[in-house]
């Protein structure tokens, strides 16, 4: 059984690495984003292999269902999708420098974990009193509201602030942002420009429009 698991792991890992390589090498931005989705999916499969079902599902829900969609949406709104004629960091010393920097940063994050982790050793039976490993939804939820309450709250506040910021940006000068007047608005505006209201209109109350001229007989007959 272990061999089967290892083979499956190998396949998934190959998918992830291959997809990741494709993400940074293909020129077409859409294809890159699609490979990124494949990569996310592989990570979800890895979680499933580790029997972390909740994490796997959340990975799919958040990364495949939301983040990648946002990425694709952003791409859709850009003009040069195919990437032809776009200067990229391909070849030359820039490429190697970038690669080295990112590898270094990744190493800083991962090396201590790799060194300090005791591999292939069955976990000792936990002494009574230690918290349960984070696996199920209930445990995860409990951990969020008991152990990691501060972090959870800070993340929540951060997200709320970001949301409010987005709304503020979107609503800034909302009336001035509109460029396209409808015919009725344009007509009304022209009318007011031609005949400015004699008195200052009270706030919130639109000024009374000048009465429409009665239709003369000649106009109707023509």
């Amino acid at each position: 059984m272990a061999t089967v698991i290892q083979i499956i792991f190998g396949l998934i890992a190959a998918l992830i690495v291959g997809a990741a390589v494709m993400v940074v090498t293909v020129r077409n931005v859409i294809h890159a984003a699609l490979w990124l989705i494949a990569c996310f999916f592989g990570v979800g499969a890895l979680y499933l292999l580790l029997e972390a079902e909740f994490l796997a599902v959340v990975q799919v829900l958040v990364y495949v269902g939301a983040i990648s969609i946002l990425i694709l949406f952003a791409i859709m709104l850009t003009r040069q999708v195919t990437g032809e004629g776009v200067r990229q960091l391909v070849g030359g010393w820039r490429l190697w420098l970038t690669a080295a920097i990112s590898a270094l940063l990744f190493a800083v994050a991962i090396v201590p974990t790799v060194i300090s982790h005791s591999w292939n050793v069955p976990a000792p039976p936990a002494p009574p009193g230690t918290p349960e490993p984070l696996a199920g939804v209930a445990e995860l939820g409990r951990a969020f509201v008991y152990e990691f309450l501060l972090q959870f709250q800070v993340a929540g506040v951060l997200l709320t602030v970001a949301l409010i910021g987005a709304i503020v940006i979107a609503f800034e000068e909302r009336a001035r942002r509109r460029r396209v007047l409808t015919l009725a608005e344009e007509h009304e505006l022209r009318k007011r420009l031609a005949h400015p209201p004699p008195v200052e209109a009270p706030a919130g109350e639109p000024a009374p429009a000048p009465r429409a001229t009665p239709i003369s007989e000649g106009e109707v007959q023509q």
Binding site: E173, R174, R177, R178, T182, R211, I215
Partner: peptide
């Protein structure tokens, strides 16, 4: 003119102006 439409409209609001706001265009003048 007096009893017809003109009398009707002047009592009510003249024209419901600007019913739809376009919020898609994010272009600031």
């Amino acid at each position: 003119a007096p009893g017809g439409l003109e009398g009707q409209t002047s009592q009510e609001k003249p024209v419901r102006i600007s019913v739809r706001r376009s919020r898609v265009d994010g272009c600031s003048t």
